[in-house]
Design a protein around this nucleic acid. Structure first.
Lengths: 264, 264
DNA sequence: GTTGGAATGGAAGTAAAATTCCATCGCCTG
DNA sequence: CAGGCGATGGAATTTTACTTCCATTCCAAC
């Protein structure tokens, strides 16, 4: 609250090491250099690993730790681990700091977090490859995922994809499912609580051998089983409301990769 | 062996866990879920930390490790650490995301830009105030905006709002419009090219005196005229593809502000 | 050359973490 | 409702990692 930017433990550590570096004996200087150059790796190593890699004795690592002002290597490693697992980039922290209590600020922060946990580009590309070979692309998503599913269907139809969306309109769910075919692809979008309606469509696809692309929040999601490609996004963070931004960005990327394949 | 891409230890681990998941007792399923959903964090935790977070006993973590085919938790953690420090790790992806030429990177950058140009929290709050007094909240948006409109309708119905969405299903557009009333609010969502269907609904609302909230990209948008509140978002910046993330975040914030008013 | 102090090596001791094992609990089955 | 079995809780044990401390080496000054 007081400081505009609070100094992280890691930044303080780095500053100490730089300040002390010239006063250290040669061996400890080598340790200092390695730790500053590979903080991520050091966070995952034991003292023994580290000592072996630098060709030093374990006790040297302890001496280094004390020489730069800490009680031992464990304290330094704790700081490095915090830095490695900090999900907040500098930018994200700035945004969080500007949280003024409005739902808009919360929604924007949530969306920002979603953008840090998207599927990999390689997974999207694989999914797009699967789409390319489809006779028909079916899209399913209900309730929270319905908007995302609609958007995907809209984008794909813009690329002249043979796409149809499961809507459940007119009490025709059974009839809709009968159109699934082994040469087709089903893109299923579902998040907790996974709707039984969506799961039923996925089950129908499995039973007739339709290729499945699942956009969901966990590898253990009920719609992930048997999928040719799973795209993980919008994982539940801790507090309160769930964003749908991750899945929107994911389907946009998926559709554009598909379009790129169609046009070249 | 014959695989073109050698399977990483982590991929094998994930596959094992997914395969065994259903056979595991409930407690071990929770552990499985947590580890698959947070591999990066688990790589840095001790068994005790992990056990505390999931609220199980340390021994449960060991049972999980053996149940999915490993000798103990240490072996699993070794695999997770390798994955975390591998060049294809999540951290590395983030760093290169802005210049790898994938549609995902483009989509994520576009979404990020959208988050910098949202409506003001005050405008959202005013719009939420208007919603609160409505007899019925009508929502309209077609094609690109249909997903956003659906999401808004879904969120509002979650707060027991009297909401209905214009869908155009069954060639009932005329009939749908006849339900507009002076005590109602219409939330219209539209972006270039502004669909005539949406404009027709807005015109109908104007003619009967329905309050209008417009979510669009410009104050000069055809649906902005006569609106009680205009929320500007997703303005086209560059020549490329248009994101829909700004409007999704906007409707989420709007719905949550509405919910806050309803519950207090 | 000898001496003193800093630097390093390495083994022993201590702390922490992982694993084992047994007791209890709860549920299903007969 | 009694018996058995799988699941869970928790203490005890083993293993691993961290830290300390003393011995040795190196180097510079006298």
């Amino acid at each position: 609250m007081g400081d505009p930017v609070a100094e992280s433990g890691f930044q303080a550590f780095a500053a100490h090491v730089v300040a002390e570096h010239d006063k250290l004996p040669p061996q400890l200087q080598r340790i200092a250099q390695f730790v500053l150059d590979n903080p991520g790796r050091v966070a995952l190593m034991t003292i023994a690993d580290l000592a072996e890699e630098i060709e030093v004795q374990p006790s040297g690592v302890i001496r280094f730790s004390k020489a730069v002002g800490y009680t031992g290597f464990s304290e330094i490693q704790r700081i490095l681990k915090e830095e490695l697992s900090a999900p907040t980039s500098y930018e994200a922290r700035l945004r969080t700091a500007s949280d003024d209590g409005s739902e808009l600020a919360r929604a924007a922060n949530l969306a920002d977090a979603s953008l840090s946990a998207l599927p990999s580009a390689a997974d999207i590309a694989r999914a797009a490859d699967i789409l390319t070979g489809a006779r028909i692309v079916h899209v399913v998503g209900f309730r929270r995922a319905f908007g995302t599913a609609s958007y995907l269907a809209y984008l794909l139809s813009g690329f002249q994809a043979p796409v149809r969306q499961f809507t459940g309109i007119g009490d025709m769910a059974d009839t809709e499912m009968q159109t699934l075919h082994a040469d087709d692809v089903l893109v299923a979008i579902s998040f907790p609580s996974y709707r039984p309606e969506t799961r039923a469509v996925v089950a129908a696809a499995r039973s007739v051998g339709t290729n499945l692309i699942s956009i969901t929040d966990s590898k253990l999601s009920p719609i992930a089983r048997g999928a040719a490609q799973v795209l993980i996004t919008d994982q539940q963070t801790d507090a309160g409301f769930r964003s749908v931004v991750g899945s929107m960005v994911t389907v946009q990327a998926l559709a554009l990769e598909y379009g790129r394949r169609r046009s070249t």
